[in-house]
């Protein structure tokens, strides 16, 4: 039987890149609110609101074994709108609470397969963000949640790690990357002098869920061209 990999937010960006790597070794199921028009035919897509408990349960009701879960669904609200409490709550719900919800709903299936989880942290897990406080708080929370799940599920043979992407050319980062002034400022500080591609993160996720990483759990690995050290 082919092992199953589930990627939330797998319809675009980093999630889709991870799904494409994982499809070399897994049957991949992408879930999320939407997917790009060019979504590949060979990947399965299930429409899902990851914050909806009943929908999550229903979505995975047929999954008895899962060898990889990538919690990639995420959102950001621009233009300082995250200072509004309803937006703040919404971002925390999608970026943090839903990761706990989805992992919890799949942990039995992960244990059966000896599987592993990769969460998406961020450089904003560590930095303060002047304009997106909910996004950065949610990603700080992801680091703690990753470690807690790593400790909680190790006894069941489930590893849990996170990647912390820097400036990756996706729709979440497009505001910054396509604003010339911000783009130049970022580039000045970025040791590798290039923005990342979703595939740069996808390959790291594929490593972390593989047997090559079998003794790694609770780790948070930045994928940022050196931005966070500079």
């Amino acid at each position: 039987m082919t092992s199953v990999a589930i990627v939330t937010g797998g319809g675009s960006g980093i999630g889709l890149a991870a799904a494409q790597y994982l499809s070399q070794t897994h049957r991949v199921i992408c879930c999320g609110l939407d997917h790009i028009d060019e979504f590949p035919d060979d990947l399965e897509f299930r429409e899902l609101d990851v914050t909806d408990e009943n929908a999550v349960t229903a979505c995975f009701s047929d999954i008895s074994e899962c060898s990889a879960l990538v919690n990639c669904a995420g959102m950001i609200v621009q233009d300082r709108q995250e200072f509004e409490i309803q937006n703040f709550r919404k971002v925390i719900d999608v970026n943090l609470n839903a990761v706990h919800l989805v992992t919890n709903s799949l942990v039995d299936a992960l244990a059966v397969a000896g599987g592993s989880v990769v969460n998406i942290a961020s450089m904003y897990s560590v930095f303060g963000s002047p304009n997106t406080p909910a996004y950065s708080a949610s990603k700080g929370g992801i680091v703690s949640l990753t470690r807690s799940h790593a400790v909680a599920f190790a006894g069941r043979g489930v590893r849990v790690n996170a990647v912390a992407p820097g400036w990756i050319d996706t729709r979440l980062a497009s505001n910054a990357i396509h604003n010339e002034e911000r783009r130049n400022r970022i580039m000045e500080r970025l040791p590798m002098r290039r923005f990342g591609e979703p595939a740069d993160v996808g390959s790291v996720i594929a490593f972390l869920v593989s047997e090559e990483a079998r003794y790694i759990t609770g780790a948070v690995l930045p994928v940022d061209g050196g931005y966070s050290i500079a």
């Binding site: 400790v151 040791p191 390959s203 490593f207 079998r214 003794y215 790694i216």
Partner: peptide, 28 residues
């Protein structure tokens, strides 16, 4: 247990956008 990580960090294809990092391999 340490081999995969050394190869991973040496492979540009696998980790080409990672630099300056310390990857912990400690079973949690």
């Amino acid at each position: 247990d340490c081999v995969g990580s050394a190869l991973f960090l040496s492979s540009r294809k696998a980790s080409g956008y990672i630099t300056g990092q310390v990857l912990h391999i400690n079973g949690g």
